[in-house]
Design a protein around this nucleic acid. Structure first.
Lengths: 178, 178
DNA sequence: TGCAATAGTTTCGATTCGCTATCATATGGA
DNA sequence: TCCATATGATAGCGAATCGAAACTATTGCA
């Protein structure tokens, strides 16, 4: 009757997530809205569209669209101008939105250790592998990221030059480095 | 503009929780119902009442009550006979409920490492500390747990003898060992 | 005995959420 | 050019949740 050791982490994480959601509820925003804002604060310019957000949040495009709409009505995000594919829309935090997210994140858990980050990444990877999700890693850890002469960062997949700050942002196209 | 390192784990966990919830949604049960079943599978006999469950799930008694009601209607849990305080009600998994949970847990993440467990516990502890939740540790790790002559396990707080299997169950009264 | 406090349930209205389907627009290949 | 496909937006449905309140039963204290 002893608990199977394989289940411990998921049970702990479940509780963590619920406490986290309860904390968020104390703010004016819902859990999905908070998660969306936090994602937008970290994602690069190629990964801030409704479809990608839906992937990240493990929901549908319809729901993601609604969440974005509500955030836009609150003045926390805006639609950015985009080049290229004119079907796509890209959202970004407004000044107010960014201030809110930064303040919010600053007040969350402080128990950040290298081991904790590593453990969380490992878990996420295994869950993604069995659930078929996308990994959303950072450019600097991606297979397609390379640093040329003069320190120029480029994405080999999209064939573009990356700004320095973009190297630490999340990307929809992330691929594990070989 | 670089992300503050303190936030990495919470963001990872947020995504893990969402993927987890999406997986659960694929089953007939809701996220809250799954979490309740999993909790009941691990909690000791003093910790399976609506109020305690509400604490664990970071929700209200009303919602917990509804969740339990729906699970009972599905035949997955039943109300146990209790001694002592007659206001309290205690629930337990039925055979079908236990089978379901065991099967479910067996199919969840396998990436269970000692570091991951430790990291999750650390995180949970810090979140609880700042959110005012309860820790729900296992009897064997509790301040009130002691092993007497002959290997008899006792809870010093409730003044009772514990069955061997109870030492690994979650308790509402858990207190960090000094 | 009387009364405040607690455990649990139930109800209500409001909100959120997820899913599905439908529509408009835009893309890209045949 | 024609058509399948993809991105988004939107509406409708059902379910779940929350918060608050009202209510019952029980406990425990004065």
């Amino acid at each position: 009757m002893a608990m199977m050791p394989q289940t411990e982490v998921m049970l702990l994480l479940d509780r963590i997530a619920r406490l986290h959601a309860a904390r968020r509820r104390a703010v004016t925003l819902t859990d999905a809205q908070c998660a969306t804002l936090e994602y937008l604060a970290r994602a690069n310019r190629f990964s801030r569209s409704p479809s990608v957000i839906a992937d990240y949040l493990a929901t549908t495009r319809g729901t993601a669209s609604q969440t974005l709409k509500s955030l836009a009505e609150k003045g926390l995000i805006t639609e950015e101008a985009t080049e290229g594919d004119r079907r796509q829309r890209r959202y970004a935090l407004t000044e107010g939105g960014r201030t809110l997210v930064e303040g919010w994140l600053a007040s969350t858990a402080k128990a950040e250790t290298a081991e904790a980050v590593q453990a969380a990444r490992t878990l996420l990877r295994s869950l993604i592998a069995s659930a078929g999700g996308k990994s959303f890693g950072m450019c600097r850890d991606c297979r397609h990221h390379s640093i040329g002469p003069g320190g120029t960062r480029t994405c080999g997949l999209l064939q573009i030059t990356l700004a320095l700050e973009e190297a630490g942002q999340l990307c929809h196209e992330f691929a594990e480095a070989g």
